[in-house]
């Protein structure tokens, strides 16, 4: 069983030439995720969502605190869907998939084709990323993340650059693949409806990188944004979001 245990996680970026001030991205985050759950990390811009994911992925190092991402006691394999697809432009779709595999065997090729089929892209495996639309490229990114058979799936606002229709379609693809694999997922977003549609649990971060609220979402899957139950949860999350904003504003005024 995969576990992500985050304890008192702090990240402070040092001053740079362009911005000569220290920036606190995370201010002591504590949370744990265990089992095959889909957790959405929701928060406004500047709340440290991406930093949190990058630290879990091992791309960035924390200033203090610790992150343990393990599967049965050993370091977990991570699959990461970035905001942008991050595909090698000079490799075909299939070779982009195989890039993250250690060995390019027939088996890994078949698995890559399998996940491309899952996201409806088996016909374009031989094309280059520049020949695909942005939505198709992001679907390759999703398929690639599942291909490594990740213990933990990290997703950083993967649909934020998409138009509403493409984003909706991609959410459907993601739900479909996730239902098939049921990986432990950490999904960063600032879109409340996206969080409610996809997650079993919503962790709200406030600016400065502190957990404000932790909300379970017990709704049957697959979910659709027009479902009244989904809308009801969305309303509740938005109400809490408003109270968070008020608390932040009040805190700022009091400070």
């Amino acid at each position: 069983m995969a576990t992500v245990l985050i304890e008192n996680l702090t990240k402070i970026y040092p001053p740079t030439i362009t911005y000569p001030h220290r920036v606190q991205a995370l201010g002591g985050v504590n949370m744990s995720v265990t089992g095959n759950v889909f957790v959405a990390v929701l928060g406004p811009s500047g709340s440290g969502k991406t930093t949190l994911l990058n630290i879990v992925a091992g791309v960035e190092t924390p200033t203090s605190g610790s992150v343990r991402a393990v599967q049965d006691g050993v370091p977990a394999q991570v699959g990461y869907v970035f905001q942008e697809p991050r595909l090698l432009p000079w490799r075909t779709v299939l070779n982009n998939m195989l890039y993250v595999q250690d060995r390019k065997s027939d088996r890994s090729r078949r698995e890559a084709e399998f996940y491309l089929t899952m996201v409806g892209l088996n016909e374009v495996a031989h094309l280059y990323p520049s020949q695909l639309s942005a939505g198709m490229q992001q679907r390759v990114g999703i398929a690639r993340a599942f291909l490594v058979n990740p213990d933990i799936l990290l997703m950083d606002e993967p649909f934020s650059h998409m138009d509403a229709l493409t984003g909706r379609s991609l959410r459907e693809y993601l739900q479909r693949v996730w239902l098939h694999t049921r990986k432990t997922a950490l999904f960063v977003t600032h879109d409340v409806s996206e969080a409610v549609e996809l997650a079993d649990r919503i962790v709200m971060l406030r600016p400065g990188g502190v957990v404000f609220d932790d909300i379970p979402v017990n709704l049957p899957r697959p979910r659709h944004p027009d479902d009244p139950a989904v809308r009801a949860v969305e309303g509740e999350v938005l109400r809490r979001f408003d109270s968070m904003e008020a608390a932040v504003r009040f805190g700022a005024q009091a400070g």
């Binding site: 049921r182 979402v217 017990n218 709704l219 049957p220 949860v233």
Partner: peptide
């Protein structure tokens, strides 16, 4: 944690034949 929606999670079945 506070429960917002008390609806139970979907049981394994036609909608979720795979499970973990």
């Amino acid at each position: 944690m506070t429960d917002v929606a008390q609806r139970p999670p979907a049981p394994p079945g036609p909608n979720d034949p795979y499970g973990q």
